[in-house]
Amino acid sequence: MAAGGDHGSPDSYRSPLASRYASPEMCFVFSDRYKFRTWRQLWLWLAEAEQTLGLPITDEQIQEMKSNLENIDFKMAAEEEKRLRHDVMAHVHTFGHCCPKAAGIIHLGATSCYVGDNTDLIILRNALDLLLPKLARVISRLADFAKERASLPTLGFTHFQPAQLTTVGKRCCLWIQDLCMDLQNLKRVRDDLRFRGVKGTTGTQASFLQLFEGDDHKVEQLDKMVTEKAGFKRAFIITGQTYTRKVDIEVLSVLASLGASVHKICTDIRLLANLKEMEEPFEKQQIGSSAMPYKRNPMRSERCCSLARHLMTLVMDPLQTASVQWFERTLDDSANRRICLAEAFLTADTILNTLQNISEGLVVYPKVIERRIRQELPFMATENIIMAMVKAGGSRQDCHEKIRVLSQQAASVVKQEGGDNDLIERIQVDAYFSPIHSQLDHLLDPSSFTGRASQQVQRFLEEEVYPLLKPYESVMKVKAELCL
């Protein structure tokens, strides 16, 4: 049975990233139509530049190519590739079939990587351009969430054990800070992308030097003109047959890092959902379990974690691919890159769409948070109580021993009897502590235990987050809708 299948058929496997999760716009960027249309555009740009620099290419040939950029006979191309065992030459023939007058000058002087690699770089750039505003929107939604809850005390956790208090907004800023680093890295790697350009079979530009009869300047002009037509500021000066596969490492490393950030955020949300302090959106008709109707599973956060793990592992592909590119190139890269580049971007696209949807509907339960604080705060307040007693004339050592005994009794009630923490009640009825009984409410005010959390939130948002989001103001209103 021949390899390949009808990918629109229910009898043929289709990647869930495309069929179930990723956005239509990201799927289109990695589609065959987008790819092969870009090949034709690159052939047109090459012909236009070659004509401008004096090669015998007519206006009629150029116009014929322009008129057929979208006229792609995919069936013919597939048949040609089956016959020739070469995808680029299959599309040269297919393009030439609908451009008979231009057929002889299509791909003039070029090698397969002229269309293959340059198209990949265009796709990487455009895919990054799709991700950047999506990530900015996630940051914006979380920034709104953090600002609104900047002063809401909550129990902090280290080692997932109760620690000092923080605020809900401050905790959210930990998430935002990681995503801001990801946004900066995505922008950097996007701006650092260079075009492969017009380089020939081993990167020496020998074929173009021959076409222009040894004119170095025209060869350099050709490279520059096509690079500018493709919208790049610069091209690699040095290439082998391909652009260095280190570029793929750079791009997928940034995406993998984004995956790590999203995994951490969504894990926190899942843990908070278990504590009943916070939940992701839950639709009115949504079913959490087929057997347990009360369940409210954090399905979206779980999906993000599941896909983020996949995204983090994909960076190993370009690392290994770059390491086995012998001399000017081997074909070890080809099949692998067809999979890992598309999957990385479709996965990143999915987790950003999902995280935006989550961040637009996060639900906080202040009463649950308050109750958990009441359970733990008495123990945390013991040092403040000791200091207040010393100020009232008591002995630190005597007070410490009193607190120690009462704390152990209260802990026994919590752990052995399943009761509430009654340390404060014990202190309130103990005559030894009568000098500070009137101060206990103040000493137990949760806001006095959150330090500068709310001020940190305000400063972080104003100095770091809002300036970073400013270039994306025009796209901030787009909502994230999930079908599944």
Rank of each mutant, 00 (worst) to 15 (best):
G393D: 09
F282T: 07
Y472H: 12
F379R: 04
Q458K: 14
L272N: 05
D129A: 10
D248Y: 01
S395Y: 06
I139D: 03
R459M: 12
L42W: 00
T201V: 08
P435C: 07
H442A: 15
E250C: 12
R374K: 15
G5D: 12
R83H: 11
E417G: 12
I249T: 08
E328W: 01
G109H: 02
P446G: 06
M292Y: 00
S253L: 10
I122F: 10
V368T: 09
H86A: 01
A342C: 12
Y466K: 14
R296A: 07
K295Q: 03
L272M: 09
H400D: 01
D144V: 15
F195Y: 13
D144R: 15
A322T: 14
T166M: 09
G200K: 00
Q41I: 08
S395C: 10
R234K: 10
A344C: 03
R404F: 12
I62K: 06
Q456N: 05
P10A: 13
A230F: 04
V429R: 13
L128W: 05
R245N: 03
F208D: 05
G419Y: 07
D422E: 09
Q51S: 10
I62S: 04
F232G: 03
R296Q: 10
R452G: 07
L142C: 10
A146T: 06
Y365G: 03
A260D: 02
M181P: 07
H86Q: 08
T354K: 04
R396I: 04
E64N: 08
G109R: 00
T450N: 04
D422V: 11
C305M: 04
K224F: 13
L179Q: 05
C113F: 00
V254C: 08
F282A: 09
Q61A: 10
Y34E: 06
F95G: 00
D192K: 08
R83L: 10
D73G: 09
R20A: 00
A150G: 12
F345H: 08
F160K: 06
D32P: 14
V429G: 15
S151E: 08
L377R: 02
D445M: 13
K470N: 13
F345R: 02
E64G: 09
S257R: 05
D441T: 09
L55G: 01
F208S: 04
R149M: 14
K66S: 09
L142A: 06
S447W: 13
V29N: 15
F236G: 02
Q428K: 12
G8S: 15
N185T: 12
R234P: 03
V324E: 06
G54H: 09
T242P: 10
L53R: 00
L108E: 01
S112M: 00
Y365R: 12
V138W: 12
L272K: 06
L174M: 14
R245W: 01
P100C: 06
E279W: 01
R141T: 15
G200I: 02
A150P: 06
G394P: 08
A22H: 07
F379N: 03
E279S: 06
L406W: 06
A388E: 09
I427K: 04
R83D: 14
W175A: 05
I385A: 04
L155D: 03
V414Q: 04
R309I: 04
S448I: 14
I373F: 05
E360W: 01
I106Y: 02
L209K: 09
V457H: 02
T58Q: 10
G104N: 13
G288Y: 02
L469E: 03
E462A: 10
I373R: 03
E425L: 09
E79K: 12
V198K: 02
L128V: 10
L443I: 13
L46R: 01
T158N: 00
L272Y: 06
R33G: 10
T239A: 15
C113E: 08
Y243R: 03
R33L: 10
D73A: 09
S290E: 02
I238Q: 06
I269Q: 04
F160R: 04
K187M: 11
T94M: 14
T204N: 10
T350M: 11
Y21D: 00
L17R: 01
H159K: 02
F157Q: 06
A136I: 15
R372P: 05
Q458C: 11
Y432T: 09
S19Y: 11
F74R: 11
R337D: 03
R303S: 02
R85W: 11
M389H: 06
T330Y: 04
Q63R: 09
H159Q: 02
F433D: 04
T201I: 02
T313L: 10
R337F: 02
C483A: 13
N118G: 10
A2K: 14
T239F: 03
S151A: 13
V413C: 09
A2P: 09
D178M: 01
A256T: 08
E473A: 13
A431G: 11
R190F: 13
C173D: 04
S289N: 01
T154F: 06
Y365N: 15
F212W: 15
K402L: 08
N274H: 15
R296N: 07
V457T: 10
M65D: 00
Q456Y: 03
P446Y: 04
I237Q: 08
A78N: 12
P467S: 10
H263F: 00
Q286R: 01
K82C: 12
L130F: 10
L423C: 02
S261M: 02
G240S: 08
I358V: 10
G156A: 10
V413A: 08
L135E: 08
R40Q: 05
Q286W: 01
L44A: 12
L155K: 01
I265M: 15
D73V: 08
S12T: 09
M389G: 10
K101M: 12
S112P: 02
I436A: 04
